[in-house]
């Protein structure tokens, strides 16, 4: 029973990490309607930035969170402006290839610059764990978990209450009509992509306390992020949060009860089933069938 409870807690906390990565992905898809295959590479860039800030300047990852988020905002905005925007009217497959191309280029650039070595920060706070009764909890995981929930709440308020947030939703549903309302559609896309990337920057800082960085770290997380987002419904923030917690639980339980090297098989199978059977996600919030 104790081990089960611990597994549940581990699963939920892991879910927090998956959530923080998935939020940006679902936001970008929700607004720009582009599936960003380069999402993982944004995370990689962020984690290397956090690593360098820690190594060169001695910054704790949590300190670098804001500057790294800003840096990724710019990176995302640049990708949107110079790669995605010219292709907005192109066929979906062209957009897929564009982001796949960006992903391939960035991943290999990481390999060129940093080599294939695995690098780890030892941050102090965030890496150590504490006891809560019988349960052992890693402080960084808890912080990540709480931040994920706060981020979803904050974005929700932003999307519902502000003119720009409303414009995000309007643009995602009807570009042409939004432009007739006086919305600068291209700029909204740049903001949305930037904001989505900034969320990844935040994720990079939070995760750096627990995970090492290497050029393909992005691929490791992106596939999971896609699973999460599809599970919750592409484009839905709450869906991403719930999907992340579910996948975290699956990861933790399947890893223990089935086999550690098959846990990914379990959630990929869930992923395939969801896409095939219910492309709008578990809660029907997404629009995967479009």
């Amino acid at each position: 029973m104790d081990i089960f409870l611990q597994l549940i807690v581990n699963g939920l906390l892991l879910g927090g990490a998956y959530a923080i990565i998935s939020i940006g992905l679902t936001l970008i898809f929700g607004v720009v309607r582009v599936v960003n295959f380069a999402h993982g590479e944004l995370l990689m860039i962020g984690m290397y930035a956090v690593f360098l800030a820690s190594q060169q300047l001695g910054w704790h990852p949590y300190v670098s969170a804001i500057p790294v988020a800003l840096m990724l905002f710019v990176t995302g905005a640049v990708i949107q402006r110079f790669v995605i925007q010219p292709l907005l009217k192109a066929d979906p497959h062209i957009q897929i290839f564009a982001t796949v191309g960006v992903s391939t280029a960035l991943l290999n650039l990481g390999l060129l610059i940093f080599g294939a070595d695995v690098r780890q920060i030892s941050p102090g706070f965030g890496a150590e764990s504490f006891q809560l009764g019988e349960l052992s909890i890693v402080s960084g995981q808890l912080v990540t978990f709480l931040m994920a929930i706060a981020l979803v709440g904050g974005l929700h308020v932003f999307l519902q209450r502000t003119y720009v947030g409303r414009a995000f939703r309007a643009v995602s549903q009807h570009r042409y009509a939004a432009s007739l309302m006086g919305v600068n559609v291209d700029r909204m896309y740049v903001y949305a992509f930037g904001l989505g990337a900034a969320c990844v920057g935040l994720a990079a800082a939070l995760l750096s306390t627990q995970y090492p960085v290497f050029p393909t770290v992005g691929s490791y997380f992106t596939l999971t992020a896609f699973v999460v987002v599809v599970l919750g419904g592409m484009g839905s923030l709450y869906g991403a949060l719930i999907g992340a917690l579910l996948i975290g639980l699956v990861d933790s339980l399947a890893g223990y009860y089935i086999s550690p090297d098959l846990k990914e098989v379990v959630y990929f199978v869930i992923f395939i089933l969801i896409l095939v059977v219910r492309p709008t996600g578990l809660l029907g919030l997404g629009r995967g069938s479009e």
Binding site: Y163, R166, A167, R169, A170, Q173, H174, Y176, A177, A178, L180, M181, G182, V183
Partner: peptide, 26 residues
């Protein structure tokens, strides 16, 4: 200068209220 486009072109998954508020975006 505002145009009411052919075929209505509402934001289908926004509430009517949010549609109206989008009208006052400028």
């Amino acid at each position: 200068l505002t145009m009411i486009p052919e075929g209505r072109q509402l934001f289908p998954f926004l509430t009517v209220k949010d549609n109206l508020l989008m009208g006052a975006y400028k």
